[in-house]
Simulated assay, not measured.
Amino acid sequence: MIKKAVIPVAGFGTRLLPITKAQPKEMLPVVNKPIVQYVVEDLVEAGVNNILFVTGKGKQAIENHFDANYELECKLERSGKTKILEEIKRINNLANIYYVRQKEPKGLGDAISYGEQFVGDEYFIAMVGDTIYSENIVIDLIKAYKKYKCSIIALERVPKEEVYKYGVVSGEPINGKIYRIGDLVEKPKVEEAPSNLIITGAYLFSPKIFEKIKETKPGKGEEIQITDAMKLLLEEEDIIGVEIDCRRYDIGDVLGWLKANVEIGVEKCPEFKEYLKEFVKNM
């Protein structure tokens, strides 16, 4: 079914400066592993084992993280640290990972277009590298694709005053929290937004999206916006939206990063749970 994914990680992470001056935002730790590892692990759990990173300047740490480090492994082995050694080797072999470099930062749509030769004529997943979820939504996207056989996007309902930060959709509910998309707008003014359903940064695309990206003119910020390309795709093919039923952690700014560490630390790490809850309560 769906075996390939494209993860754009070429952005500068300006909202997280100076943390991201020399470190990719996708490599910031959330509890005990970097953000991007959560993204890759969700893809692999959903059966998507071939992953293309679209990188940019200063992103070598991502390549190093998923590559073997024999000096480190030998040191761990000599020290008898077998548990962490096993984890390091697991990361090395998580998936078949490839890299291509975006020549200049021209937006998410442009970044995704670098996956055209890698994807070919297959449907594929696209995930931004700075957003993680409390549940595996890739599985939900693939499940919806099996039923509707078209492009699928993950949606979230947010307070109306926040819609200006996102791509926003209007849609007709067809089955619970499943919507047939009617329109898409990139970062609208609050009073002009068609709804408070936003695009979260997780997509399952028809390969025709590449053709539509080529037809897309620069939009907000003079960048090639994937929302604008989807609007063109919608003229020829259906797009289905799946409203997520879990927490989304947008780690594009410092507050989002701090919240992700606390909440995921409480939910995913039983050894820290009671301590963190008590610590926050007593602050």
Rank of each mutant, 00 (worst) to 15 (best):
I35S: 00
L17I: 09
I35F: 07
C246N: 07
K147Y: 12
K189E: 15
G47I: 08
N49V: 01
V36Q: 00
S170F: 10
A126W: 03
K212D: 15
V39W: 09
P270N: 15
K143S: 14
K214Q: 12
K212Q: 12
K89P: 07
T200V: 08
L52R: 04
E191H: 14
K273F: 05
P173C: 05
K4F: 10
K89C: 03
I137M: 07
K259D: 10
E73W: 12
I224S: 03
E41Y: 09
K25C: 06
A202T: 03
V280P: 03
E156C: 02
S195N: 10
D245R: 00
A202Q: 07
L17T: 10
A126E: 04
Q23M: 07
V6A: 09
V266H: 07
G252A: 08
E77V: 09
R247K: 15
E211I: 11
I181Q: 06
P159C: 06
G256H: 00
L108Y: 14
G80R: 11
C74W: 13
I224Y: 02
K268Q: 14
V48G: 05
E77G: 11
G58C: 02
E278K: 14
I112G: 02
I112F: 07
S113T: 04
D250V: 09
K281T: 12
I174S: 13
V266L: 07
P194I: 04
R78G: 12
K147R: 15
T216A: 04
Y203H: 01
C150M: 01
E41H: 03
I199W: 01
Y123M: 12
E186F: 11
R180D: 08
F272Q: 13
E116H: 10
A46K: 03
L76W: 12
I142K: 10
K21L: 12
I139M: 12
D238H: 11
N175M: 07
M1I: 11
V280S: 02
L16W: 05
Q102F: 10
K217H: 13
L255G: 06
S170C: 02
L76S: 09
E87Y: 14
I35D: 04
K281Y: 09
K106W: 02
F124C: 10
T200Y: 06
I19Y: 08
V262S: 04
E86H: 13
E172I: 15
